[in-house]
């Protein structure tokens, strides 16, 4: 498969959130505002690319039987290193993204791509896959967050878009609102796909 194809498949065709349905926990938890969504999305993309590279590099020396624990160690170690170095040298960035970094360890998109893609493909394609999946995840998060932030807070990226008199629909910021929004968007996606 070509590099471009690997890159773009994660955005719509194999969108990790709406199609593969991976990484639901961070999607539900961090989609309360577009700010958070972008932060989480980019942090996850970064880790995803790096872990894909790592896994792809070591795929020949990891025995098949213990590959999952190896992935866990590699990803957890990597995330911790990113977390610590960011806290030490980029404190401002860490302040806004730091909250999401521990969440990335349990983001199963990263495990999922390591298992389903990176351990079978070469480094270049794995990078493309990481970028595409990461962007797809970021876009999906932003879409959910846009709906939730506008309805639940009357703002988008902290800019007020609803009139001052708008009484925010608080449920969209709560867990049930996250499930309902995600469910409806997934339904909409499937409906559009069937039409094609």
């Amino acid at each position: 498969m070509s590099f471009m194809k690997e890159l773009t498949k994660g955005i719509i065709k194999e969108n990790p959130t709406f199609v593969i349905v991976l990484g639901m926990c961070p999607t539900l938890a961090t989609s309360t505002s577009v700010n958070n969504a972008i932060g989480m999305g980019l942090a996850a993309t970064f880790v995803l690319i790096c872990s894909n590279i790592f896994i792809s590099l070591i795929k020949n020396i990891t025995p098949d039987k213990i590959r999952i624990p190896v992935y866990v160690i590699v990803i957890a170690a990597f995330v911790s290193i990113v977390d610590m170095s960011m806290a030490a040298y980029l404190p401002a960035l860490h302040k806004s993204l730091g909250l999401f970094i521990p969440l990335i360890v349990v983001n199963c998109i990263i495990m999922g791509r390591a298992e389903a893609y990176a351990n079978k493909n070469n480094v270049i394609n794995s990078i493309a896959d990481g970028i595409g999946m990461g962007l797809g995840f970021t876009l999906a998060l932003c879409l959910v967050a846009t709906i939730r932030e506008i309805l639940g807070n009357g703002t988008w990226l902290n800019i007020r878009v609803m009139p001052e008199t708008y009484d925010p629909m608080l449920i969209t910021l709560l867990a049930p609102g996250a499930f309902i929004t995600l469910g409806l968007l997934m339904g909409l996606m499937n409906m559009l796909k069937e039409k094609k």
């Binding site: 025995p63 213990i66 624990p69 190896v70 160690i73 590699v74 957890a76 170690a77 290193i81």
Partner: peptide, 13 residues
């Protein structure tokens, strides 16, 4: 092998 991975990761951390 797993131990080796852990040792390397822990040392790095």
């Amino acid at each position: 092998i797993l131990l080796a991975f852990c040792v390397v990761a822990t040392a790095l951390l």
